[in-house]
């Protein structure tokens, strides 16, 4: 049986190492948003509505960053059984789930004025919703399992299968739609908006990295405390 090595105690991260980076990410995002809003003229078809895209698109795209991290570190956890990998995957899953929820909300705020309805069964929208539900399940699983090793292995399995399922869900929903109804027209990004979009993509990516990092630090500190207690209990028994 392979198991998480109980001897290696987790080291709590040094205090405040990510704070500077966090400030930078937040200020960069504000700057990127202001720049994008100021430099972009109102869209020909969509008017000011186009400006939602500067948050919606970067947030939506960066959910994939999160779930890619989940996939990567879940596989590595099953392979090498380092507890840090599990904590990192879980942090990315939490941030990713929140960002998926935000993506859905922003998509609705776009859809109501653009299409006249809050929701359409569009492949991208629908697969985003399914993705959200899959990773809500992932987070629930972690809540319901106490043993750290079991929690790590199980959530890694759920994370890997969930990430695998994303393209499959997208494909099946697209088939389902195209066979029966006309697909909703995708919002094309005008070349003049590319700078604003790219700037915001970078900003949201930085923020995503920061949030995952911070969540990971918190998880690591929490587990480090549990390790200390465990070692103290074991040491007491030996002495």
């Amino acid at each position: 049986m392979t198991s998480v090595n109980a001897q290696t105690t987790l080291q709590a991260p040094a205090q405040g190492r990510s704070t500077g980076f966090g400030w930078f990410a937040v200020l960069f995002l504000i700057a990127a948003q202001v720049t994008a809003i100021v430099i972009s003229p109102p869209d020909r078809d969509m008017g000011d509505l186009q400006k939602i895209m500067y948050v919606h698109f970067p947030v939506a795209l960066n959910t994939f960053t999160c779930f890619f991290v989940v996939l990567l570190f879940s596989v590595r956890f099953l392979w090498q059984r380092r507890e840090q990998d599990d904590l990192l995957a879980a942090s990315a899953a939490e941030v990713g789930t929140i960002m998926t929820g935000l993506t859905l909300a922003l998509g609705m705020l776009w859809g109501r004025p653009a299409w006249g309805v809050w929701w359409v069964w569009d492949p991208r929208l629908t697969s985003t919703l399914v993705l959200f539900l899959i990773f809500a399940g992932y987070l629930a699983l972690r809540e319901f399992v106490e043993d750290p090793e079991r929690r790590g292995v199980w959530s890694a399995a759920v994370g890997i299968l969930g990430a695998l399922n994303v393209p499959i869900v997208y494909m099946s929903v697209r088939w389902w739609r195209t066979l029966h109804q006309v697909q909703s027209s995708p919002s094309t990004v005008d070349p003049s908006y590319v700078i604003g979009i790219r700037l915001n993509l970078t900003a949201v990516l930085l923020l995503t990295i920061f949030l995952i990092w911070r969540r990971y630090e918190a998880a690591l500190t929490e587990r480090a405390a549990e390790h200390v207690l465990q070692t103290a209990a074991l040491g007491g028994a030996n002495a």
Partner: peptide, 29 residues
């Protein structure tokens, strides 16, 4: 997994149903 966790009644459908979307969609269609 679900059968060996707390709250298995909720956890199994919560994990399973979203994952089954492609299969169910194809089977239903």
């Amino acid at each position: 997994m679900a059968s060996r966790s707390r709250a298995r009644e909720v956890l199994l459908p919560l994990l399973l149903f979203p994952m089954l979307v492609p299969v169910l969609l194809a089977a239903m269609q």
